[in-house]
Computed example of a mutant assay.
Amino acid sequence: MKRRHFVNLFSSASGAALLSAHAPGWAQAVARRAASADDRILVLVELKGGNDGLNTVVPYTDSAYYQLRPVIGIKPDEVIRLDGTTGLHPELRPLLALWEKGELGIVQGVGYPQPNLSHFRSIEIWETASKSNEYLSDGWATRGLKAGLAARRNFTAEGVLIGGGEAGALAGARAVSLNNPEAFVNESKFAQGMEGPQPGSNAALAYLMQVEGDINQAAQGLRSEKYNFSTQFPAGAFGNGVRAAAQVVASQRGKAGVPVITLTLGSFDTHQNQPGTHANLLRQLAEGMAALKSSLTELDAWDRTLVMTFSEFGRRARQNNSNGTDHGTVAPHFVAGGAVRGGLYGQPPDLSRLDATQNALYSTDFRQLYATVARDWWGVSPDAVTRGNFEALKFLRT
């Protein structure tokens, strides 16, 4: 049976999914690092559909930007100015407190060679850290776990996916998919009470039984009294996801914890009438990130948390005839946390120098972000994660 079959079977049986748990023959290399790094949390926020980077981090003094976007460009007097040339979309104002405190970094011009503009293929490239012409089965975060992180701690689960059923960066890891911790625990009680056939000599059935056991074990590990936050979480699906992420962290106090949590917001596939849709999505992102900072600060966990956004691609530099943007290449991404060294990293796209498809050229390879997480956050070999030599950035203090 394929991994996807396991996911679907246990999603319907217990309301939760354990994604590719303990694949047979899984070899774990041990890389030594500081013990404190084992308690760190990585929160990955997927901006699903391809976020328009130019209207997110705005080059408000660049005349080429307004020539390319005469209707949908963010006007200079609307921009939240970060310096003399760069600003944020006005709906990102909740992020300004993070910026002013030096806990928000913006990595500019992020992309990769020979970009693929298919949603499905490009997000696969991002999630596996593959080259454009290769196909990998394990996620980049999973390789970080295998490189030593999971070998040193008996994590409750290696990851929790909130608001999305695909394993993504955690493909191949012992990762639990849920909408909120309480529902996950309650539904998995049903799985605990089920009687199933004995595996006998059937290897596939034995593997299924092992997966079911891991679901129940992870459910028990997430069991705790509901933490009553003073933080006011935003309404809506993304706000609920942020609340669930905070509750996962609360449930792990005093335990080995969960090293990776993923959240999803979208769709950013704004081919038409972009301004209103994009503004609403960015407002949800900013309010959610502000609530995440507030709730994790309550738990004394903000300083050991790194939040990082990603998206399959950016949007084309020139607006289309429907007041939207089509699939493009580069985009900026946010990193936030108590250990982040705030500021601008990398170079913004040069809008006077577009490629043959009228897309901007990247200046920062997305695998540089992963190399930074591997080296400076997890203390493992970046090569094990990126499968190549990519220079780490300097947005982390630790």
Results as ranks from 00 to 15, higher is better:
40 R>I: 04
107 V>D: 09
233 F>C: 01
268 F>P: 11
328 G>M: 02
185 V>N: 02
369 L>F: 04
11 S>Y: 11
152 R>T: 14
155 F>D: 06
60 Y>K: 00
24 P>L: 04
348 P>N: 13
102 G>R: 04
387 R>W: 10
186 N>C: 05
320 N>E: 10
31 A>M: 12
179 N>A: 15
269 D>S: 09
82 L>E: 05
112 Y>N: 08
118 S>Y: 08
222 L>P: 01
207 Y>E: 11
150 A>E: 14
143 R>C: 11
65 Y>C: 02
363 S>T: 13
277 T>M: 10
200 G>E: 00
180 N>K: 13
340 V>G: 07
186 N>S: 12
66 Y>G: 07
265 L>H: 03
256 A>F: 00
92 L>W: 02
168 G>L: 01
14 S>F: 09
332 P>M: 01
59 P>R: 12
246 A>L: 01
363 S>R: 10
35 A>E: 14
275 P>K: 00
21 A>K: 09
86 T>S: 12
147 A>S: 13
360 A>M: 05
66 Y>M: 03
368 Q>F: 05
371 A>I: 02
144 G>R: 06
307 V>S: 07
250 A>P: 15
215 I>E: 07
291 A>H: 09
254 G>H: 04
312 E>I: 03
234 P>F: 00
112 Y>S: 04
390 F>C: 06
194 M>P: 03
22 H>C: 12
54 L>N: 06
289 M>E: 09
120 F>S: 13
222 L>K: 05
262 T>G: 12
182 E>G: 15
266 G>T: 10
